[in-house]
């Protein structure tokens, strides 16, 4: 089949959604499909840009390319699913959350002026019109599916994406807690740093890049964590797998995350995951005291969970192994079969 995967691109930013789109194309190609990634840059401010740029996707003609038909189009996140195609499937990574659950929060984008309020409503209309025309709707997590249904009344089937291919292994349960992900406020790395301040036995390695890095490094200094916290920036595949292989546990507690690959990557490295009760998608993956610890979203709660794992390495190992068994059930073969069987 000739398959186009549509995904917006934010220049200079790369996270789990981008990895998912790349992986999907790669896995489709592995199965002898002619697959291509189509991206268009997305800038979400000022508010009118959100609407204008969704129209850019609508203007694309991907029904056929180079004289041949495109058999299937798989769109991922806003505004890529605004694109037209007679055989459009949406595998929803997320809507433009600033227009929904993040509105009027510190992470919101729309102000109180009539223009901003109406621009937000325009996003709702665009979503309603262009998601409901999809031949089938999938969501990467129950959390994303629930948000879609509660906001627009549209039902999506949950189809969790497998994590990226890495040389996953477990070398040891070392002396550091690993945080992996883009450094922005929503990922809440602060909690981990403040937990480290509450327990001077904790060592932390923060992997990732993002706009919040400078602030987090400043916070680490303020908390006098010098020597116990290191920021590696973005790592290559080998180095990332190595960190997973050597850490004690993985911390992953964004605010109401869509899904998050990190817990599955941790599990494939046989590592337990510490998350929080308000983390959203990760709670569909991490089972408290079975494959990790679900703590209160406070520095004290996180510190207690991590200290407990440090004091009980056998438990960390047992939880990591159970997690690995869970993660191994999530395969690209099954995922692509469902997507293409739709």
């Amino acid at each position: 089949m000739r398959i186009v995967v549509c995904h917006p691109q934010v220049p200079f930013a790369r996270g789990g959604a981008e990895i998912l789109a790349d992986n999907l194309v790669e896995e489709l190609r592995r199965r002898d499909h002619e697959a291509e990634l189509v991206t268009v840059p997305f800038k979400w401010y000022p508010p009118k840009s959100v609407v204008t740029q969704s129209l850019v996707w609508r203007m694309l003609d991907l029904e056929d390319v180079q004289g041949g038909p495109v058999d299937l189009l798989i769109a991922t996140k806003f505004p890529s699913y605004v694109v037209r195609h007679p055989n459009k499937i949406v595998w929803l990574v997320h809507q433009f959350r600033q227009a929904y659950d993040l509105d009027r929060t510190v992470l919101g984008e729309f102000g109180e002026e009539p223009f901003d309020r109406a621009a937000r409503r325009a996003v709702h209309r665009v979503d309603q019109a262009t998601l409901s025309e999809a031949r089938r709707l999938f969501a990467i997590s129950g959390n994303v599916a629930d948000r879609l249904e509660s906001s627009l009344g549209l039902k999506a089937e949950v189809l969790r994406p497998p994590p990226q291919r890495l040389d996953y292994r477990c070398d040891e349960y070392g002396d550091f807690v690993l945080s992996v992900g883009r450094l922005d406020r929503a990922k809440r790395v602060d909690l981990l740093l403040e937990a480290a301040a509450a327990d001077d036995g904790l060592r932390v390695v923060v992997v990732g890049e993002g706009p919040d890095r400078e602030r987090l490094e400043g916070l680490a200094r303020e908390l006098h964590l010098d020597g116990r916290v290191s920021f590696t920036g973005r790592l290559g595949d080998e180095a990332l797998a190595d960190h997973y292989a050597r850490c004690l546990a993985v911390f992953y507690a964004p605010v109401d995350e869509d899904f998050g690959f990190v817990p599955y990557e941790a599990f494939l490295s046989e590592k337990p995951v510490v998350t929080t009760r308000d983390a959203g998608g990760p709670l569909e993956v991490v089972e408290d005291r079975r494959t990790g610890v679900v703590s209160e979203p406070t520095p004290g709660g996180v510190a207690e969970a991590l200290s407990w794992l440090a004091a009980n390495p056998d438990q960390a190992r047992a939880q990591g192994r159970l997690g690995k068994a869970e993660a191994e059930r999530l395969t690209w073969d099954a995922t692509i079969e469902r997507l293409l069987g739709a």
């Binding site: 129209l55 223009f115 109406a118 709702h124």
Partner: peptide
């Protein structure tokens, strides 16, 4: 609320988008 917000600002939003186009 949705109707009020749309009625109050949608013309301006559409004008802005059309201006870009």
């Amino acid at each position: 609320l949705a109707a009020i917000e749309e009625a109050a600002g949608t013309d301006d939003v559409e004008h802005a988008v059309l201006h870009d186009v």
